[in-house]
């Protein structure tokens, strides 16, 4: 087992036993209490100026995603156009946080973004045998290498949930460490690693907290809830528990890790609830696309429609936002 040594303050883990011992020191999560807190925060009423701010912030945090078997270069190009200019009629709308695609489409996305003035929009690739993660380490590493070499600056990897659930946490840890090392080496430290926990398969909040810490200790730059292929995905209590984890990790070790809920966030209301969770859990430092992203596809259009409504005072039909 290798110790990542990501920052001098983050504890070094030298064996599976050490990791196990570390995770045992974590406080348990009370299911009822966590759900009650998330439900209370969902009652916040965000209106007028704060709603406008939240909509623009949410747009800048969207990882605009397409992860379909039917994805084509044409589809990727329209997605890129949307990412750079979400609302073609209004240049004050910020560009999204990133474009998130499968590996083989990274190069196309990067080229298109650069061509249309979106060179500051990163391309994220789902690597490591997404979404199941059921492949050998050799394949996962090759997958990652491929993505970076094609121009991805963000890698969304999946953890081996089977290994985690069977208690083989050393393996889960090592995989993250290795992928991180590969990314660092190939990108010269420029690319970021998002670790997908697939919380819908971990099921308990205790598992979510443990997996969050495991990923952070192994060198994750972001922890991400879900692939979007499993239900439930980014539920409010799960995001709450992950935000508590990054908050406490930063407090204890001085390293700020990002959080990315993905899956099931479709409406402006959902997105604003996420921002409230961030604001009142991890704190406002995390209200930044560098530390909070929302993995989504249909959300962006709802944000745009709500934005138009705020500006114009009336709801437009869906035909006033582009379908991409």
């Amino acid at each position: 087992m290798i110790s990542p040594g990501i920052s001098q303050n983050v504890p070094k883990i030298n064996s599976e036993q050490e990791l196990r011992n570390f995770l045992k020191t974590l406080s348990p999560v009370d299911q009822v209490g966590a759900q009650a807190r998330a439900a209370m925060l969902a009652t916040r009423s965000i209106k007028t100026t704060s709603k406008l701010w939240a909509i623009d912030t949410a747009i800048s945090m969207v990882d605009l995603t397409t992860l379909e078997g039917a994805d084509t270069p044409g589809k990727i190009k329209t997605l890129c156009a949307k990412a750079v200019r979400p609302d073609p009629t209004d240049s004050s709308v910020p560009h999204v946080g990133a474009v998130c695609v499968y590996n083989d489409l990274v190069a196309i996305a990067r080229k298109e973004l650069d061509a249309i003035g979106g060179s500051d929009v990163p391309v994220a690739a789902v690597a490591t045998a997404f979404p199941s993660g059921r492949a050998s380490m050799k394949v996962k590493l090759a997958d990652t290498k491929d993505a970076i070499e094609s121009g991805a600056t963000e890698i969304d990897m999946v953890i081996d949930r089977g290994a985690f659930l069977s208690g083989n946490i050393g393996l889960v840890f090592d995989e993250i460490v290795e992928i991180k090392a590969t990314i660092n080496e190939l990108s010269g430290g420029r690319a970021h690693l998002k670790v997908i926990l697939e919380t819908g398969e971990l099921v308990t909040y205790d598992n979510v907290r443990k997996a969050s810490y495991l990923a952070m200790l192994a060198g994750a730059d972001f922890i991400k809830t879900s692939t979007g292929k499993v239900n439930p995905a980014a539920t409010a209590p799960v995001v709450l528990v992950m935000l508590e984890a990054v908050r406490d990790f930063c407090h204890d070790y001085g390293r700020m890790i990002g959080v990315k809920p993905a899956g099931g966030i479709r409406t402006t209301k959902d997105a604003i609830k996420q921002l409230v969770l961030v604001n009142e859990t991890a704190g406002e430092k995390w209200l930044d696309p560098k530390y909070f992203r929302i993995g989504a596809s249909s959300l962006l259009n709802d944000l745009l429609m709500q934005r138009m409504k705020m500006k114009n005072g009336y709801y437009s039909s869906a035909n006033y936002v582009t379908i991409d």
């Binding site: 209106k47 704060s50 409230v276």
Partner: peptide, 10 residues
Amino acid sequence: MSKFEYANAP
């Protein structure tokens, strides 16, 4: 002033 001020919602 924090980033995310909640506007009045009376």
